[in-house]
């Protein structure tokens, strides 16, 4: 059991949720970045206690840790970057179009669903 990792991941999850629920776009963005980190740590924790093990590279000797969660996290980190970048662009575009940096702020451009 890795109590330290569980506590860290849980704490980061809570912090991320707290940030995302705030109106400020920048805080939402930070919350999202922390959320990705928390999720990665969570999956890492599931890979088991690393004590007395070695990296999943053959030939290093010892019992290697489970490589599968690591492969999952590696892709998750990169995908997380892609999503963060998209979020950044989205906030930027939102700012350019409406001047908003806070949820519920900025001028309403009066668009409705019916507009083509």
């Amino acid at each position: 059991m890795q109590l330290d990792t569980a506590l860290l991941a849980g704490f980061l999850f809570a912090l991320a949720a707290w940030l995302i629920l705030q109106p400020s776009f920048v805080r939402k963005l930070f919350g999202f970045v922390i959320l990705s980190n928390a999720a990665n740590l969570f999956v890492l924790m599931v890979s088991g206690d690393p004590a007395g093990r070695s990296a999943p590279i053959m030939g290093d000797g010892g019992v290697p840790v489970d490589p599968l969660p690591q492969a999952l996290i590696l892709t998750a980190i990169v995908i997380g970057f892609g999503v963060t970048a998209y979020l950044v662009m989205l906030l930027y575009r939102l700012f350019l179009d409406t001047g908003a940096t806070v949820e519920g702020d900025g001028e309403d451009d009066g668009r409705e669903g019916g507009e083509r």
């Binding site: 059991m1 890795q2 109590l3 990792t5 569980a6 506590l7 991941a9 849980g10 704490f11 980061l12 999850f13 809570a14 912090l15 949720a17 707290w18 629920l21 705030q22 928390a38 969570f42 924790m45 599931v46 088991g48 206690d49």
Partner: peptide
């Protein structure tokens, strides 16, 4: 906000502990 965040964090930590135990 605080309540939701705390509940979420606690839940994730517990789920993690259960999964690894």
């Amino acid at each position: 906000r605080l309540g939701v965040a705390a509940a979420f964090g606690t839940m994730m930590a517990v789920v993690g502990l259960v999964m690894t135990s």
